[in-house]
Each structure stands twice: as structure tokens, then as C-alpha cells.
Amino acid sequence: MLENLVKWSRIKSPWVIHFNSGGCNGCDIEILAALMPRLDAERFGVLLQGSPRHSDVLVCTGAVTEQMKDRLIRIYEQTPEPKFVIACGTCAITGAMFESYNTHGGIDKVIPVNAYVPGCPPKPEAILDGVVKLLTSLKEG
């Protein structure tokens, strides 16, 4: 009973924090656009949070630069359990064109990732779809 209640509230109010680990800003403005009135992510209970300590879902963009690596791990550790990570955009998935001396080539090289949203940048609809798919998978098990 209580377990069901916790699960229900978890699915109905996923608070997200957005973390740019060295992307070009394209994904970041599209994430914001997904939260705007046209798509209105808040109808799924999605709310953008400033502090990792208040959030459930970490939406990461960028190819993880050397300087941001430690911070990404720290932000991930600060997020309370259970936590989920979405890698948003092609360079968050593989590093894409930014494979240089200063990047790590993807979020999943540094922290575990639950969902991937491809695209350069993914459209706001795609980002929202990724979030909803993550929530649906939680519902199922």
C-alpha cells in the first residue's frame, strides 16, 4: 500500500535538474523550450529544480569536459536516491564531434545513465518523450 503510494508520487512529480557538462547550449535551450507553455512539461509533474538535493532526475547535456567531470560526479552524488539520469543530445551519448584531449566522450563514461535522447539538438518533443518513456518504464517495474 505505502509502496504503491510512494511509486505513484514518484511517477507523478519527477523534479528535474539540468546539468550542462560542456555542450554547445543547443540542447539546453531545447530543454527549457520543453518546459515552456507550448509543450508544458508541468502537466506530467515535471518541475525544473535548482538544487540537486531536491531533484529526482538529472538531465545531462554535453560531452563531459575534464573540468566538469568532478562536478558531474559530485552533483550525481548529491542527488538523493532513487535517482535517474537522462543523457540528452548526441554529444551526451557518445561525445560526437567533440572528441578531443579535454572531453570524456559521453555522460555514461562517468555516471550511470537510464535514458538516452539522441539528436543534435533533440527537439523539445523528443526530450519530453524521453522523460515520459522513463516514467512509463518506472510504472511498469
Binding site: G22, T65, Q67, R71, M97, F98, S100, N102
Partner: peptide, 22 residues
């Protein structure tokens, strides 16, 4: 410098057409 991705160095290894996308 938190966002440094080494783009100028990467540009030296790509053709002009590829650099357009970079």
C-alpha cells in the same frame, strides 16, 4: 574554462566542409 572542448584544435583535423558543422 569549464566548457573548454578544444574546438580550435579539432578544427585543424577536419576539412573545411566538416568544420562548417563544427
Amino acid at each position: 574554462g569549464h566548457m573548454h572542448r578544444g574546438i580550435e584544435k579539432l578544427a585543424e583535423h577536419r576539412t573545411y566542409i566538416q568544420n562548417l558543422y563544427l
